[in-house]
Design a protein around this nucleic acid. Structure first.
Lengths: 167, 167
DNA sequence: TTAAACTTTCAAAAATAATTGAAAGTTTGT
DNA sequence: ACAAACTTTCAATTATTTTTGAAAGTTTAA
């Protein structure tokens, strides 16, 4: 396999994976492209490589920057903007974890708290509901706290998590 | 908040969350409904509660069974089928992890292996590509192995993971 | 201050995904 | 073997999401 083919395959694969995780295909593809580029890429180049419109590129780049995993760069003497991706994978994982926690897990916990604390009356049905949503709340909370812990460290985080938890 | 309202809120929330994770809304809603039901639910009841068509219910139930997190049940004397969800949350997490690994991570690893082992010539661009995709491969592999480990156990898995890894 | 070079926005269009419902399929009891 | 009771399938429809492209906005240099 030659370079161009490999790069394309990687970008396509990463894009397809993105869809399965609720991230739109183009956004994931742009991210993939930037991840494997050794130098900052202009919007023009992104449009060209992925065959997408200017508006599309602009919006998805903004999305990636909101996630904190793509940065704007400026080149001396150049007026246009360039973009780079976070390339450190531990850092990438940390950013994604933090953001998903903030956007999805925290709001879900809030709702779970609400619904699990209703007055449970006497019916088995209602008791089961309260019981199950309470368990769910505890489970999600535990999982989220673990993510928090993980993101406190940067490399070899599992090892360090160990130590932290043994205290 | 009264029971019916709480139940509805939970089902809606779980459904919305599903979309963000690449699972379709109805599938997540059915799952939510079954999770908090203390007894098996018929297709008829699911259709009624979620206001969806028979075809929709049928297809999404099948999807949930493919994930291994919803089961068919038969009631004595009843011709029709009933459904229940896996309610043990550790077990649920294990099932989802295994399935995502099989469906998404393993195929991705295969591609990452392929693209990271191209002949890297001498350009900095190609070298960076190989370097970055190799790191990605290692990272994803490590993450997947961790999931594997986690799924070997059933409850208190984090504690047991500890023990296993200390050996 | 003007205009060139660039980016963002957003309504409309296109693409994709989910849903319906009725016909076809299956199973069970008589 | 029949038919009642149920489930599955899938082409057509509907809903949702993504993409486009041109107008509006912004920044910089002269």
């Amino acid at each position: 396999m030659e370079f161009k083919e490999a790069k394309n395959k990687f970008v396509q694969t990463w894009g397809a994976l993105g869809s399965q995780w609720g991230i739109n295909k183009t956004m994931a593809q742009i991210h993939a492209l930037l991840m494997v580029s050794n130098e900052p890429v202009s919007m023009e180049d992104i449009m060209e490589e992925l065959q997408i419109s200017r508006g599309n590129a602009s919006m998805n780049l903004r999305g990636l920057m909101d996630w904190g995993i793509v940065y704007k760069e400026f080149k001396a003497g150049e007026r246009k903007e360039f973009f780079t991706a976070e390339k450190d994978l531990d850092e990438l994982a940390v950013k994604i974890s933090r953001e998903r926690s903030k956007r999805e897990i925290k709001p879900t916990l809030k709702i779970l708290k609400e619904v699990s604390t209703i007055e449970a009356k006497d019916s088995a049905e209602e008791k089961h509901f309260v019981d199950q949503t309470t368990k769910l709340y505890d489970f999600v909370l535990k999982a989220d706290n673990m993510l928090d812990k993980i993101t406190e460290f940067n490399d070899n985080w599992l090892g360090k998590l160990f130590i932290k938890m043994m205290k």
